[in-house]
Write a protein that binds this DNA or RNA. Structure first.
Lengths: 340, 340
DNA sequence: ATGAAAGCGCTAACAG
DNA sequence: CTGTTAGCGCTTTCAT
């Protein structure tokens, strides 16, 4: 294998000093005459010279890579987010590396250090809950960072998210209109920003309509996963609750509920209605299709990347620290109309 | 922000030279007396010194990161693979970065160069089809590389995969036993290794049973995606083919078929049976559950990582260039029994 | 067993 | 405008 060319090789060939070559490959505004610049570019072209990024970032302490850290890469929600980030990043000339923290604090800490130690230009970050250690690490790293779904929490920074409350309120109103009153609300993990906001959206909407959740409704926390939804539904059913609709804080939970319902021979929506939140692609494939709230994750990813890169490149911070996106209700067939 | 410690700081504190510290942190067998070694380790500990990986890999031209490049990160098959890789890699002290080539040659080339330029220790690679340019890049990079689903192709290297043929043959035999004879075989993309092997497995199995595919069967190529399955099924149905079972080369395709069937008011499996391949987690959630072939993809990921790291660390190559994993049939409810 | 010195490939003052 | 000089933080001969 021929060793790759270095800046010195180019300099020698061009008959100039490495510094000059450096100036042109960095589009350094500092003066290089039009001719020498062209000459060098020409040589770089023909030899296909690529500067060594590692050497570069050793000096500048910066690279053209942005890191994305998420808690669960198997959840399509996050892969969709990643896709949005990648699109935007690529168009701006950045690479992206994905770190899966697997909802595990140590792993997350390692990921974050890894990114810092490799001089990433910036980070897009999400987690269910941010630990104090993580917050400290982020603070001390001083790497530009954008949150997806921040939670008025240990760190203040720029954040991109959907309007969870509106979304879930829309669902509540729809369900009320469909005649439902006996809800099992599977709220997702307690203390997690998106889950908390969605819950508030739901409960406030009921209140606003003067309908109380309490007597017939039941609220239960659970992980953001299919298995958790399955278990929660099982428990509720075993308690012989009479429920007309399972309102789930995300689609995964709804999948679990549906699986249990199927196992018990209960039909959706005839025997029981189910709703989700996020509208990940699979939800329309269920039979019946899952009624849920569309969450523009890819768009979120793109915006997060854009904000981050703007920031990295020195743009002034946006006026608001939080960029909010709208959701909308996706009516499919998993909710039954209950005439009153 | 206090600047991170350097090896010099440690050296000064320990009263030794940087070289000695280097020897210690690299567990360099070269002689360092037991005492100085312990002394230095002690200091490294208390100050929490972390060597700068970038500087390190600039010299060694190697890092402790392995790269995974896949064609479609939104397909759960690949996120599961990644998960397997991560588990294994973490336990061996490696970080992993994911690159999504998005089934796009330029992107893939950029990803591969990126990994090479950042001195990754090795790469785990999959794509639907390998271009000649990609092959050249891989060859000239000389980075250790493991294929997932290699395809007797431009490059020879170590490969980890499932036995596609066996898997699809098991499916064929099952369907035959269930009385099916009129198949629509949605074969996935032509020329893609896994798709070709699966198709062969299916066709050969029929032949072995002395049953010919031809008169009533129809074979159609399509992308490995839900939309492609949907379109293919639409076309076939519009041609008024009388089909008893759609045999799909992966689960995603089957999802598309099911979506179309639902739209047309056709019931699975009463009006038409459908099968998949891979058994990604959603498949059991479908109603009826999708009959498919379980593909131990996480295990694949773990093995790929293990093989790769062994190789990186200088282990002799395994005797066979190909590590094969078994699949098994997962019978759910998407296939109807057709008494003859 | 340890240290001094010479870089890895590049950028960043500082001169000219 | 361009070249020279120092390093970035680390590893690696080569001495001692």
């Amino acid at each position: 294998m021929e060793k790759p060319m270095t800046i010195k090789d180019i300099a020698r060939i061009a008959g100039v000093s490495p510094a000059t070559v450096s100036r042109v490959i960095n589009n350094n505004p500092a003066g290089v005459s039009r001719e020498t610049r062209a000459h060098i570019q020409q040589i770089v072209q023909t030899y296909g010279y690529q500067p060594n990024n590692v050497a570069r970032s050793m000096i500048t302490k910066r690279s053209n890579t942005i890191g994305v850290v998420v808690p669960d890469i198997v959840n399509q929600f996050y892969t969709l987010l990643l896709k949005g980030v990648e699109d935007m990043a690529a168009s701006r000339g950045y690479s992206v590396v994905l770190c899966n923290s697997n909802n595990n604090e140590d792993k997350e800490l390692r990921n974050l250090s890894y990114l810092r130690d490799n001089y990433v230009a910036g980070i897009i970050y999400n987690n269910y809950r941010m630990s104090e250690r993580t917050a400290n690490l982020i603070r001390s790293s001083r790497v530009p960072l954008i949150f997806v779904d921040n939670w008025g929490d240990p760190i203040d920074g720029i954040c991109v998210r959907i309007n969870h409350q509106h979304g879930m309120a829309a669902m509540a109103n729809y369900l009320l209109d469909m005649g439902h009153r006996a809800f099992a609300y599977l709220a997702g993990p307690e203390g997690v920003f998106s889950a908390d906001m969605r819950r508030r959206g739901f409960l406030d909407a009921l209140e606003e309509r003067g309908i109380s959740f309490a007597p017939r409704g039941v609220l239960q926390h659970c992980a953001y996963s299919e298995d958790a939804g399955y278990e929660a539904a099982k428990q509720l059913l075993d308690e012989k609750r009479s429920i007309t609709c399972f309102v789930c804080a995300n689609d995964l939970i709804a999948y679990g509920v549906i699986r249990l319902l199927n196992e018990r021979g209960l039909r959706v929506p005839d025997d029981c209605s189910v709703t989700g939140f996020d509208d990940i692609p699979f939800s329309r494939l269920l039979n019946p299709g899952l009624t849920t709230i569309y969450n523009p994750v890819q768009q979120l990813g793109r915006s997060a990347a854009q904000l981050l890169i703007d920031h990295i490149e020195g743009a002034p911070p946006p006026p608001q620290r939080e960029l909010l996106f709208d959701t909308h209700l996706v009516r499919r067939a998993s909710v039954k109309f209950l005439p009153s």
